[in-house]
């Protein structure tokens, strides 16, 4: 058994994790596409900060690698790439969700409560912070809701990415040191390539359909 995390660092991690959730809720109500991308960058920055705190407190150098990868990949590269894509395909900035703002806020709130209920039996297994697992599940569920609620292909990609942030938070919360380095690097490259593949598809959809509204993708049935 290694030394229990100090009170301060634990509280700090809880604070950062809850900030991630706040950013997620902002994403749910924010209407501008570019702001959405930047909010995702901010959320990833918070994740990188959590990983850095873990790395410093426990002296685990490989978690620092994870933090650096997150910083380069999800805070700098992917947002830059997505913004470039948005500029290149010249789409409108407005997002047009299916459910209006107050209702989606309420739904996200309900989903957060639900995830706290779901995570309750497992709180004893959390090794870092308190309720970080609940936050991770909340990110997963609200990300799922965001995905359903958005029409534009690119905002669905962002929703998928926030879900992935939730999973990475769960990895740190449940295991302290994250996963073995080879797995972390594998996941990192997969996510980056996934977003680029999605970008290619978004670009082609935009060219063929003259729109990015995925509700127009409705020809194939049965």
């Amino acid at each position: 058994m290694n030394t229990p995390p100090t009170e301060t660092s634990s509280q700090f991690i809880t604070l950062l994790a809850s900030l991630m959730l706040v950013v997620q809720l902002l994403l749910a109500v924010q209407r501008m596409l570019v702001t959405n991308i930047r909010l995702f960058a901010l959320q990833s920055l918070l994740l990188a900060a959590i990983a850095t705190v873990v790395a410093c407190v426990f002296g685990a150098w490989h978690v620092l690698v994870v933090a650096v990868l997150t910083l380069i990949g999800k805070v700098l590269f992917l947002p830059w790439w997505l913004e470039r894509l948005v500029r290149r395909i010249k789409i409108g900035q407005e997002i047009h969700p299916f459910v209006n703002m107050p209702a989606s806020m309420l739904i996200c709130g309900a989903l957060t409560v639900l995830s706290y209920v779901v995570a309750r039996p497992f709180t004893s297994l959390e090794r870092l912070g308190s309720n970080t697992l609940a936050v991770a599940i909340a990110l997963l569920l609200t990300g799922f809701f965001l995905m359903i609620n958005r029409r534009k292909a690119i905002t669905q990609v962002l929703a998928l990415l926030t879900m992935e942030n939730g999973v990475m938070l769960a990895a740190i919360a449940l295991t302290t040191y994250g996963m073995p380095l080879v797995v972390e690097i594998g996941i990192f490259f997969d996510v980056v390539i996934a977003v680029m593949v999605l970008g290619i598809l978004v670009f082609r959809i935009r060219e063929s359909f003259d729109s990015m509204d995925v509700s127009k993708l409705n020809e194939l049935k049965w």
């Binding site: 995905m147 669905q156 879900m163 993708l217 409705n218 194939l220």
Partner: peptide
């Protein structure tokens, strides 16, 4: 084609999820 892009999008979104 339009339909193949639709199929690919459904595949990547459901698969990604």
């Amino acid at each position: 084609r339009k339909t193949s892009l639709e199929a690919a999008w459904k595949y990547v979104m459901l698969g990604g999820l």
